Computed example of a mutant assay.
Amino acid sequence: MTGPSLQDDPRPTEAFDARHTDLDRLSPLALVQTFADDQLQALQAVQAAVPSLTAAVEAARGRLEQGGRLIYAGAGTSGRLGMLDATELTPTFSWPPERAVPLLAGGLRAMREAVEGAEDDADAGAGDVCAAQVGPGDVLIAVAASGTTPYVLGAAAQARAAGALTVGLSNNPGTPLLSAVDCPVLLDTGPEVISGSTRLKAGTAQKIALNILSSALMVGLGKVYGNLMVDLRASNAKLEARALRLVQHATGAPLPDAQAALHAAGGRVKTAIVMLRLNIEAADAEARLARSGGHARATLGETEQAPDRTPPG
């Protein structure tokens, strides 16, 4: 009597890909090309998910405008990608770290090593959501390639019961996670080159989707002017130089003027831009930005809506 085979699992991410049965016999060039070609399916999956990603952004923005938090829940690769996205929001957009809360099955230890059984504990997922005091103002992004991870399902169920908006990213269609959330996002990447290794294109699709979700939300919240990262946190020499370039680019000011404005603004790029563009002091610029909800374009009186662009191809 034999046990279940790879073909018995209905989840495409766990399926056996018969195209790559000689993977271990390929030359280095052919091997690298195979992996590179397969990764293209990650982008195709994200492109197909644009409508559902848009719906998630539209649903989440209002809660964040009212002071809500982004909560990420995942296990293994999915959880680590959520941790990464949450962490990068602070230096990129000055998003308060307490408003980007990553929940990882097994805790911080699981960033570097597998924690046995952590992802199989739905109660732990629910408990972590309770411990984070997730409530109606928050947005939970639940990520699971399989769409069946108990920890993630427990977190999503508890967050939804608490009134939070729930977004779910899964790489398999028809999975429990997609049925358990308010905003389901299917990233249908199919079987992996290395069977079952969802750190490959499934993980790539998740990374792209998380980048899109959080970046689109930050743009909508006024963290970007044009396509300039005007709310970055200049925490090192590289970012300080970037902040100065951003001020000069947005205002056309000479270097000494840009430096002086940035210094007076306490390193806040958006404040320095408003100061220079409107010829006002830092305190006045801050007050005007506050009245416009932090949106530089509205503060500068540039409120005309840009037309939607026709998608390529």
Rank of each mutant, 00 (worst) to 15 (best):
E119K: 02
E119H: 02
E119S: 03
D120T: 05
D120M: 02
D120H: 05
D120N: 06
D121R: 01
D121I: 00
D121V: 00
D121L: 01
A122M: 00
D123E: 15
D123P: 00
A124F: 01
A124L: 03
A124Y: 00
A124I: 01
G125C: 02
G125S: 01
G127F: 05
G127I: 07
D128W: 04
D128P: 01
D128E: 11
V129W: 00
C130P: 02
C130Q: 12
A131H: 04
A131W: 04
A131R: 04
A131G: 03
A132I: 14
A132R: 07
Q133L: 13
V134T: 14
V134E: 04
V134S: 03
G137P: 09
D138I: 09
D138H: 06
V139W: 13
V139C: 09
V139T: 12
L140R: 13
L140Y: 09
L140K: 14
L140Q: 14
L140N: 11
L140P: 13
I141P: 10
I141A: 08
I141R: 09
I141E: 14
I141V: 15
I141D: 13
A142K: 09
A142N: 08
A144C: 07
A144F: 10
A144M: 07
A145H: 15
A145N: 15
S146A: 05
S146Q: 07
S146K: 04
G147S: 09
G147A: 03
T148M: 05
T148A: 09
T149K: 11
P150K: 06
Y151A: 00
Y151W: 03
Y151H: 00
Y151Q: 00
V152F: 03
V152P: 02
G154A: 05
A155G: 07
A156D: 12
A156H: 12
A157Q: 08
Q158R: 14
Q158A: 13
Q158E: 15
A159T: 09
A159S: 06
A159I: 11
R160F: 08
A161G: 14
A161V: 14
A161W: 12
A162S: 15
A162Q: 13
A162T: 12
G163Y: 15
G163R: 06
G163H: 12
A164R: 15
A164G: 12
L165S: 05
L165K: 03
L165V: 11
T166Q: 06
T166N: 13
V167S: 11
G168Q: 03
G168A: 02
G168T: 06
L169Y: 13
S170R: 05
S170P: 07
S170H: 13
N171G: 15
N171D: 15
N172L: 11
N172C: 14
N172V: 12
N172W: 12
N172E: 11
N172D: 13
P173D: 02
P173I: 03
G174P: 10
G174D: 11
G174S: 14
G174T: 10
G174I: 14
T175Y: 10
T175S: 13
T175M: 07
P176L: 00
P176G: 01
L177N: 02
L177S: 03
L177Y: 05
L178P: 08
L178K: 04
L178F: 06
S179G: 00
S179I: 00
S179Q: 08
A180S: 08
A180K: 03
V181T: 11
V181Q: 09
D182Y: 08
C183M: 15
C183K: 15
C183G: 12
V185E: 12
L186I: 13
L186H: 04
L187A: 05
